[in-house]
Design a protein around this nucleic acid. Sequence first.
DNA 1: AATAGTGTTCTAGTTAATTAGAACACTATT
DNA 2: AATAGTGTTCTAATTAACTAGAACACTATT
Lengths: 118, 118
Amino acid sequence: MFARVNKHDGVPAYIQIMHIIKKEVFMGRIKERDQLPPVRELAEIFGVNMNTVMKALERLQLEGLVEAEHGVGYFIKESEIVKEEVLSMIRKVVRELKQKDMDLEVTKLLFEEVWRND
Amino acid sequence: MFARVNKHDGVPAYIQIMHIIKKEVFMGRIKERDQLPPVRELAEIFGVNMNTVMKALERLQLEGLVEAEHGVGYFIKESEIVKEEVLSMIRKVVRELKQKDMDLEVTKLLFEEVWRND
DNA sequence: AATAGTGTTCTAGTTAATTAGAACACTATT
DNA sequence: AATAGTGTTCTAATTAACTAGAACACTATT
């Protein structure tokens, strides 16, 4: 279910873990109210220390994607509706941009620039 | 023309400088083929060391926005002119995604995934 | 070839980010 | 109340990022 973390590509492990979990949720492969595997198990899966997983989960909690219950576990918090809406929004704009012969890398740059400055 | 860098807001100076220059180009306040002020002058304007400016310019060069001529200066590179239609399309979707509390990095991930698989 | 104006590289100090080990704390079950 | 399974906090070592000073290298002009 989860990909292993790549320790030598420059991106911090906890950031990679955040991305992996977010992606799974947004793609609908982890559903609302699902319980995540225990922190220790995730640590083993990803090949990192428990606290590295903790750091990712804390940040995801701040962003409102997951919720911790002390002594019980971590649960997915985000609503299904937003995910579908976001996904189809992205699908639509990707379709339109491809039709205009845009290139992925340039698009990403523009995206970042607009994101930061608008 | 250029804003001064804020050294205490957590964002590294060279990143701030990249954003400032990008924005100037993006907004059309620096035109294609224009020469930038000398590195030393920029350093003074921004209130940082020459190498901090260098670092920003090197990254901008990698992204294809500027080009260095050793012993002469830095120039804005002629790039594909982005269609207004594309830009406003991106602006719109960025606005919507931000409203839904999406973050840039995950959006980029989803974007790539959809781009490659749709 | 000398000079002034420009970009570039080398080196190192400082600071911040990242990761890990170990002990602690809560919950549910028996 | 004991235990097993879970999240949490504390501390410290390591690593990476950031910035700066100084010397070097290229270009155009005289």
